[in-house]
């Protein structure tokens, strides 16, 4: 018995010490990343006046640099492909918590019909974006909060703070589709080979039953955070290569209840969005389309928002 206990203790001590060597791997992970926006977030370096939040449609369809040049206001795109409203709510909270210079205008991209459905397989809370930056306590705390990691184990063992991807010691490189520009935007200059180019003229009805409580609460929380921090909120819906979902816009209007500006692209007013040459696929614009949509957004902001106030603030 004594031998067993001693051997077991020695085994555990050896494991505990070996585990501590992983600090080197964990702490060097951010250097291997190319998309360092999460690190900038935790370091409080997101200090632009305009922040764009959203999924891949926010990332690809809105070019922050163009917005900035046109409006003469600093802008940063903080959209992540595959991310949902719960993640956007988290990002906004962290920006407000960490940044020295709070944003004045938030552009939130909404995706029809899955914006408020946190069970969707397409839009998620991008936990994978936390692991490369897990040396920052904020990232680890969120992983613990979401039940991904255990509080006690992550305090005891470095390995429990990490994911298997942390052990890929190669430097990351952008793929053509995931290139993040300096301003955080991710426009695409080519077309998805699977894109048929046939405009879908029939539409479906929005199903409120698909919404989840978490999705709705996160959306409301974004509105409330903006209100509380005196941030102008503009909710946008960029073009799709199909007819809009009936009832989605109305549902968003009813939730927003005059607490935000709404800009839903109308392809009857802007006919470019009916041309296949401006699309990467049926839900994302390509770079030329993104330039046109950003110009359209600039016009809207000039018309609806008191930009001089933002410039002065």
């Amino acid at each position: 018995m004594k031998k067993f206990l001693l051997t077991f203790l020695l085994f555990l001590v050896g494991f505990f010490l070996a585990d501590k060597l992983l600090i080197i791997v964990r702490n060097s992970a951010p250097d291997r990343e190319v998309d360092k926006r999460m690190e900038q977030l935790y370091q409080g370096k997101i200090n632009s006046d305009i922040i764009i939040l959203g999924s891949s449609r926010g990332a690809r369809d809105v070019i922050a640099g163009q917005l900035s040049d046109s409006l003469k206001i600093s802008a940063q795109n903080f959209s992540f492909p595959g991310s949902g409203v719960e993640f956007h709510d988290y990002l906004l909270s962290e920006i407000l918590k960490n940044s020295k210079h709070k944003p004045k205008l938030l552009i939130l991209n909404v995706d029809d019909p899955e914006e408020l459905n946190t069970n969707s397989s397409r839009l998620n809370f991008r936990l994978d974006r936390f692991y490369p930056f897990v040396k920052y306590p904020q990232a680890l705390d969120e992983l613990i909060k979401r039940g991904e990691k255990n509080y006690w184990l992550s305090n005891l063992f470095i390995v429990h703070q990490m994911s298997i991807d942390n052990f890929d010691l190669r430097k990351r490189h952008y793929k053509a589709i995931d290139t993040v520009l300096q301003d955080g935007s991710m426009p695409i200059s080519f077309t998805d080979p699977r894109f048929t180019g046939i405009f879908k003229d029939t539409s479906e009805y929005y199903d409120v039953k698909q919404e989840t409580e978490t999705g709705l609460n996160s959306f409301l929380n974004i509105i409330n955070q903006c209100k509380k921090n005196n941030i102008e909120l503009v909710i946008i819906s960029p073009p799709n290569y199909y007819k809009s979902i009936y009832g989605f816009r109305e549902r968003i209007v009813s939730i927003v209840n005059n607490n935000a500006h709404l800009y839903f692209h109308d392809n009857n007013l802007h006919t470019y969005s009916k041309e296949a040459k401006y699309y990467y696929d049926d839900v994302h614009l390509n770079k030329s389309g993104a330039v046109l949509f950003t110009s359209e957004l600039v016009d809207y902001l000039r018309k609806e928002i008191n930009l001089s106030d933002i410039q002065k603030k």
Partner: peptide
């Protein structure tokens, strides 16, 4: 031998989530 067991244990603690 212990390195092999450590590898397994590392993987268990690494993958252990909710």
């Amino acid at each position: 031998r212990w390195s092999f067991y450590y590898l397994l244990l590392f993987l268990v603690i690494l993958f252990l989530s909710h």
